[in-house]
Design a protein around this nucleic acid. Structure first.
Length: 206
DNA sequence: ATATCGATTGACT
DNA sequence: GTCAATCGATATA
């Protein structure tokens, strides 16, 4: 298995370019004991400092401090006081651009992801509402499955930290661009990128 | 100081 | 379809 990671130059580019090129890349969550949890990225959104949907639009705060840090590091924040969301800081340090990872396809460590998400091991026939697809189909869901918290991951390096991003193992399927989800400003920008037809998207394209 | 809303999700009618 | 959970940022006083 190729264990190389993206270098800083991969992230120090236009945020939409990085968002598109992250589709198909691997997200690797290292653990203290046992093998890593791995997901393949299938859905991303770009947020740029100069458009009002971005957390960085109004400048730096305690929450978004990592957004203005070096590229190739994580920005993790709490949404609605409930869920964590994982982002990739892009562009030159101090810019405030980031890519939100909205969905991944589970690739390794699925039983551990199940426990992280649902709090109990999978039991055949039990709780049919708890599906594999819903482990990682959405920013809050994937953060839960991969045990990503602000305390542990915010501001850490994506080359050497608890979460590491690795290049595509193969060319992804067709990448489709749509409007972003869940925002009320700059709604017209088509800065959401998805691998067409993936069953692990937070929402089907449309 | 107090109120409102948010890059979400799951429980419920 | 509605709504609550509940932290941080922002608007208003």
């Amino acid at each position: 298995m190729d264990r190389s990671t993206h270098s800083t130059s991969f992230y120090n580019r236009d945020v939409c370019t990085v968002a598109e090129e992250l589709i198909g890349c691997l997200m690797v969550r290292a653990r203290a004991d046992g093998p890593p949890l791995i997901g393949r990225i299938v859905e991303t959104e770009a947020y740029r400092h100069d458009e009002p949907a971005s957390h960085s639009f109004n400048g730096q705060t305690a929450r978004n401090r990592a957004m203005f840090g070096p590229p190739g590091h994580a920005y993790v924040y709490l949404i609605y006081g409930v869920h964590s969301c994982f982002n990739v800081v892009c562009g030159p340090q101090g810019t405030g651009d980031a890519v939100l990872i909205r969905a991944v396809e589970p690739r390794a460590g699925l039983p551990e992801m199940w426990v992280n998400r649902y709090g109990t091991p999978w039991v055949p026939g039990e709780r049919p509402d708890r599906q594999v697809r819903l482990l990682t189909a959405g920013p809050g869901r994937l953060a839960s499955a991969l045990a990503i918290t602000r305390e542990e991951v915010d501001g850490t390096s994506l080359e050497s930290g608890p979460v590491v991003l690795m290049p595509r193992e193969a060319e992804p399927g067709e990448i489709v661009q749509t409007t972003r989800i869940g925002i009320s400003r700059a709604v017209e920008l088509k800065w959401r990128f998805v691998e067409a037809g993936s069953p692990f998207l937070s929402r089907a394209v449309g």
